[in-house]
Amino acid sequence: MQNFKAVIFDMDGLLLDSERLYYASFQETCSHFRLGDLSDVFKRCLGTNSVTGKAILTKALDGLVAYDAFRTKWEHLISIVMDEIPVPLKNGAEQLLSTLKGSHTPMAVATSSDTELARTRLSDSKILPYFDCVVGGDLVSKGKPDPEIYVTAATRLDVSPSDCLALEDSGNGVRSAVSAGMIVVQVPDMIQPDDELLALGHIVLKDLSEVIRYHF
């Protein structure tokens, strides 16, 4: 039986199959500046907002290349890919959104991306109308894994965090939603949860189509 009153979604890697595109562009940027393999740096940035991501990347690039030069090249490569076609949806995303909409369940997006960029990506992928609100990383003072963004999304939906189901793919996102006191489902994308993350006791499913069949 459903025991939540609202659902809050992460975006990149959860609704949109975008993280692989970001990663490919990141690797191409590293190659451009002859930096070698910085995969671990990219992974540490997953699920963080622009401020935290900048801090991680600036530290990793110190003495190698200026952050602004790296970021400009990376964003240029991302825009080339993103402008060609809409970012594809993850498996089960549209079916889940349609099912929840049919049951009049309030829905929000809580993403580390900036709000207007998130709204554009969701609109391009034809799923923005499903959501009652979009809360980006620029609207909170502390990014994931801090719970602020999930608490903010719940407040905007006028629902208690404990009555919300949060859907995430990254470890930072899972920690954020768990700290907010929500029911948390992780659908891993590029990184599988380790034992430390699994100890939080959240639900782990293969893809969003399984959420429909899961008995909460």
Rank of each mutant, 00 (worst) to 15 (best):
E19L: 06
I203P: 00
V134W: 00
T152V: 12
D37H: 13
N172D: 05
L61S: 07
H32G: 08
L16G: 02
V185D: 00
I127Q: 00
I8F: 00
D68M: 07
S25R: 08
L198F: 06
S170T: 09
D132G: 15
G63L: 14
G63Q: 14
L77Q: 14
K59F: 04
P145S: 10
S18H: 05
M1Y: 02
G47A: 13
V81F: 10
T105M: 15
D17W: 01
A180Y: 05
H202K: 10
K142S: 11
T58N: 06
L96I: 03
A55R: 15
K126C: 09
P147G: 09
T105F: 06
L35P: 08
D138W: 07
E19P: 12
S123L: 09
V109G: 01
I56L: 15
Y67A: 05
F216S: 13
D17E: 07
L15A: 06
D189P: 06
L57E: 03
K43I: 07
C133R: 09
K43F: 14
E28R: 15
T115F: 00
L167E: 00
S209T: 14
S209C: 15
D194N: 13
R175E: 08
D10N: 08
Y23M: 07
I127T: 00
K144N: 12
L122F: 04
I127N: 03
L89P: 00
D207H: 11
A24K: 15
V81C: 12
Y214A: 04
D146G: 14
